[in-house]
Amino acid sequence: MSVLVYTENWDGKFKKLSFELISYANEMAKQLGTEVIALSIGNVEDVELKSLGAYGAAKVVSVNDDKLASLENQPYAGVIAEVAAKEAAKVVLLANNNAGKAIAPRLSVKMKAGVIAGATEVPSSYDPFTVKKKVFTGKALANVVVKSDVKIVTLAQNSFGLVEDAKDAAVEAFDASVEDVKTAVKETNKVTGKVLLNDAEVVIAGGRGLKGPENFGPVEELAELLGGATACSRPVSDEDWRPHSEHVGQTGKIIAPNLYFAFGISGAIQHLGGVSSSKVIVAVNTDKDAPIFEAADYGIIGDAQKILPELIDAIKAAKAE
């Protein structure tokens, strides 16, 4: 028996998300009286693979094959299913990100294993296997029971945190049988050197209250100052003031940073659905009745354009202390 975790890598490196998944798996494995086995697919160096041991992985299975160079859900699901069977996995864990969303459903059908997508806690019970997840984009929570023998869970990002539990993880190279890839990647476009919205601990978002695309300079400046990422509300991306990839909200990205700033965003229910998992929300809006203040922890009634530069100065001053 084991808890198997698929740990995605980004150009051969793991990130906080990977360690959070292992931490979550480790807590589950302790409660089940078993151990965590991580599965890495692609070209990752042993020293990086072993780093998963810091959060409780007892073993890391590494599968590397030229056919797996691009993250295609069909062959990846095949590899994960094969390793899950080999390791007698009781639970298979993935992240609830682009990759996890693409792979977990395929894996579910392949293994005839029920999947809970976007779990926010460890199971409240193991028999029946019951996990809590958000539904209706955070407007409610559901307790979901998985009835199949093997259970698949994807973890909502930033919902568990990091818990160290140092183990000397054994690395095992495994030769999986890999299906042929039926799709061909023609072009990859990646932004490098920028904090990704989904990974950011601090997110600075601007809305229509900023009046125009030319006024987002201070949003970017504040993001840079705090090592965070920039974001926007739906109207802002619809009007092409900012790229669609920055839209946070029900139909855009769902984020859960430690600190979220909403400048000139009224906080329509669809917007709140995308940001309500943030640990601390700060809102600046001219309208004292804006719904964003119901979701916020700290608020200022005022013009975002005026407050932003003052806030930047105040943070600089605080940092200089």
Partner: peptide, 24 residues
């Protein structure tokens, strides 16, 4: 393969702490 057995509403959030616009 799964069953949604029960639902809960999220806990109400504490009131927003307001800061004066003149005192950023």
């Amino acid at each position: 393969l799964t069953e949604f057995v029960s639902y809960e509403l999220p806990a109400a959030k504490a009131a927003c702490k307001m800061v004066d616009a003149e005192n950023v």
